[in-house]
């Protein structure tokens, strides 16, 4: 088993994300979580590979499907689950919800509900790194559904023009809500868009978390060297619907089952269990993840709700402008 310690750590995080979301789905059906809940189940290897490709001083921005990368960047399951439950102990004090996970300490800058609009924002974080020469790289995630909106184009145009230290990661999960790739974009190889901006590009299937890490690391280090942005398209799949209200009738059961057979999480587990070096650790690790998940649900449930006195101080820094 190569890099046994890292492999175990990656598996732990992928499992934590999956179990976190399964419990979130359960809590949603119990009415503990409101609004929208967009699950990342099936795509965990991307977030975990990405987090391992970065330094703690690098930054991340993503869309509303944000639980995975937030946890992978170091947010605690407690802070994440409490946010979903709308509690003051949540990462955004219960004011953001599922779509607006923020963790400034771990340089995770959201959690954005207007897809595409987060691309220029991320370019701004990268601009700041270049302006201050702090050596930081920003990784911004978007889906196939964000690829066509105008703000994405403007953000990429400027990032490429100014050679900003940023990596655009297109998580192509094949469906923009209920619209399949073929029905939403004229060129389904979205990495080709890089050519128009004069950016480096890469494109691969998300089956091996190590491959994801290594190929993203190439892009991150290219950015860090001042050679500009890379557009990386990662072909992935979400097992659940777009959000909790989506039964996903636009795709066949066979298609979903086929993807599940190639599940990166299960593959990694099989490898770890088969290797004498790591086999003994797998079950203990899984038990620890279960305990962490149980604890985060308990914590979220028992935490207090935010109170009205939070509203005005989180709207303006100083005196309220009315």
């Amino acid at each position: 088993m190569k890099e046994a310690k890292t492999a175990l750590e990656m598996y732990r995080m992928m499992l934590l994300i999956r179990r976190f979301e399964e419990e979130a789905a359960r809590a949603y059906s119990l009415g503990k979580i409101g609004g929208f809940l967009h699950l990342y189940i099936g795509q965990e290897a991307v977030a975990v590979g990405a987090a391992h490709a970065m330094r703690p001083t690098d930054s991340v921005v993503t869309t509303y499907r944000d639980h995975g990368i937030a946890l992978a960047r170091g947010m605690t399951a407690n802070a994440g689950m409490a946010e979903l439950f709308g509690k003051v102990t949540g990462c955004s004090k219960g004011l953001g919800g599922s779509m607006h996970f923020f963790d400034a300490e771990n340089r995770m800058y959201g959690g954005h509900g207007i897809i595409g609009a987060h691309i220029p924002l991320a370019a701004g974080v990268a601009f700041a790194s270049k302006y201050t020469s702090d050596g930081g790289v920003t990784m911004v995630f978007y889906g196939d559904g964000s690829a066509s909106i105008g703000a994405t184009h403007e953000g990429m145009s400027l990032a490429a023009l100014w050679k900003l230290p940023i990596v655009f990661v297109c998580e192509n999960n094949q469906y923009a809500m209920g619209t399949s790739l073929e029905r939403s974009i004229s060129v389904t190889d979205m990495s080709k868009k890089a050519d128009g901006y004069g950016m480096a590009k890469d494109r691969f299937v998300a089956e091996d978390v190590f491959e994801i890490r290594d190929r993203l690391k190439d892009a991150v280090e290219r950015a860090r060297r001042g050679e500009g942005p890379t557009l990386v398209e990662i072909l992935t799949y979400r097992y659940r619907g777009h959000s909790m209200s989506d039964p996903a009738k636009y795709r066949t059961k066979e298609e979903v089952e086929d993807y599940k057979k190639r599940d990166a999480l299960n593959q990694l587990r099989a490898e770890l269990a088969a290797s004498p070096e790591t086999a003994k650790d797998v079950e203990a690790l899984e038990a620890a993840v279960e305990a962490e998940i149980a604890e985060c649900v308990r914590f979220a449930d028992e935490s207090p709700e935010p109170t009205a006195d939070l509203l005005e101080p989180t709207t303006y820094a100083g005196e309220f402008a009315r």
Partner: peptide, 26 residues
């Protein structure tokens, strides 16, 4: 040129870059 920056016609782009840069301290 580092501090006086010409942009192409991309208001959503450079407004967003300004917001993102402000968000991390500029």
């Amino acid at each position: 040129e580092r501090r006086v920056i010409d942009t192409p016609i991309t208001e959503a782009g450079f407004a967003g870059i300004g917001i993102g840069a402000a968000m991390v301290g500029l």
